[in-house]
Every structure is written in structure tokens, then in C-alpha cells.
């Protein structure tokens, strides 16, 4: 059996987490709260480091005064806690975050998910597989027409799309199961190998 306290705590944490599979219980609850607390402490430490490297040091060491703006914006998040009259302050930091997020979404979606996929679908219709790929993509896309008049053709094509989607889901599902099983094996070998040395490492 292992004499390492890290391994022991790790094993108890693993058993506690797995115990959820039977029922939510005291052990799970304990592990859950310890884990959430530890993870919160971890991200607080990372957040502190970010403030140090991105705000405090550039300000103090390099005289980079511009960082005062995001610091002020950050402080404005707390405005609503000082009365409803200050609730507007939160809108400014949020608009910065939302603006960046919306911009990044557009730039990431349009090339990787759109133009590259359109180009890859424009295949020569010389093999059955290519015909099926093009037809499958078009049918799937038809499923996502929300406002067009439901003519017989559109309804039929989008129904084919729904079938393609379901087969896609089935394929992804079956594909994932075996990968997930190997993860369980990894945890079992930790418990029986590293912890109680029942399996030779």
C-alpha cells in the first residue's frame, strides 16, 4: 500500500467522486465541497497572478498608465453593491467583455466554421460518396431553415437532414464510448496500482 499522503488523499477523492454513481451521499458531498473550494482558491490565485503581471507590474515598473482604465472598469463591476443608483457602472466593464467576445465569435466562426466548410463541400460529383456528402450537408442545412414556407420539398429535404443528424449523433456517441471506457481503466489502475499496489505498475 502507498505511503504517500498525496496518493491517499487522491484515492479518497476518487472514491468519493465515484460514489455519486450509486447515490448522492455524505462522502460525495464532502468531496464535492472540498473540490469546489480548492478549485475556487486555485482560480483566485491565477486571477491574482494575472492582476500582478498584467496590471500592477506594468503600472509600477514600466509606468504603463493605460492599465488604470481596465482596473477602474473592473472596480465598476462592484457598483450595484453600493446602491441601485450605481447599477449603471456595471454596464461599462460588461460592454468591454461582451464586445470582445462578440468580435472574437464572429472572426472565429466565419473562416473555420463557414468558408472552409463551404470550400470542402464543393466536391466534384463524380463518386457516390461525394454526392452523398454534398446532399447530406445541404439536407442538414435545410433542417435549420426556420422561416421559409414549409413546402413539400423543403419539409422532405429537412426530414432527410434530421436523419443525417441522428446518424451523425449515433456515430459520435459510439465513437466516444470506447474512449471514455479507457478513462475508467486509468482511474481503476490508479486505485489498485498506485494506491493499494494490487496491480503491478
Amino acid at each position: 500500500m502507498s505511503t504517500s499522503i498525496v496518493t491517499w488523499v487522491g484515492a479518497l477523492v476518487t472514491i468519493g467522486a465515484f460514489s455519486y454513481l450509486f447515490k448522492e451521499n455524505v462522502m460525495y458531498r464532502t468531496i464535492e465541497h472540498i473540490y469546489v473550494g480548492a478549485a475556487a482558491g486555485y482560480v483566485i490565485s491565477v486571477g491574482y497572478q494575472n492582476l500582478l503581471t498584467k496590471a500592477w507590474r506594468p503600472l509600477v515598473n514600466e509606468g504603463h498608465w493605460l492599465v488604470i482604465i481596465p482596473v477602474l472598469l473592473g472596480l465598476m463591476l462592484f457598483g450595484p453593491y453600493f446602491g441601485s443608483k450605481l447599477s449603471w457602472t456595471r454596464r461599462y466593464p460588461l460592454s468591454l467583455i461582451i464586445g470582445v467576445g462578440a468580435g472574437i465569435t464572429i472572426r472565429s466562426a466565419v473562416i473555420e466554421q463557414l468558408t472552409k466548410q463551404l470550400a470542402s463541400t464543393a466536391l466534384p460529383l463524380k463518386t457516390i460518396n461525394n454526392v452523398l456528402i454534398v446532399a447530406g450537408v445541404l439536407a442538414t442545412l435545410s433542417y435549420f431553415f426556420f422561416t421559409f414556407k414549409p413546402t413539400r420539398t423543403l419539409t422532405g429535404v429537412s426530414e432527410v437532414g434530421k436523419w443525417v443528424i441522428m446518424i451523425t449523433f449515433g456515430a459520435a456517441f459510439g465513437n466516444a464510448i470506447m474512449g471514455r471506457v479507457s478513462l475508467v481503466i486509468g482511474r481503476v489502475s490508479f486505485l489498485f496500482g498506485e494506491w493499494i499496489h494490487l496491480i503491478k505498475q
Binding site: L118, T121, A122, L123, L125, L138, F144, F146, T147
Partner: peptide, 23 residues
């Protein structure tokens, strides 16, 4: 949402035209 549908229709047309021309 209707605008989204029109954009999808254009994408639909581009793929179909691209496939026919590629052939």
C-alpha cells in the same frame, strides 16, 4: 432569424454551385 435563413440559402447555393462547377 429570417436574415440568417437567407444567409444559409446563399451558403446552400454556393456549395451546390461549387460542386456542380467542380464536377
Amino acid at each position: 432569424v429570417h436574415g440568417q435563413d437567407l444567409a444559409k440559402l446563399i451558403a446552400f447555393g454556393v456549395m451546390l454551385l461549387g460542386a456542380i462547377l467542380c464536377t
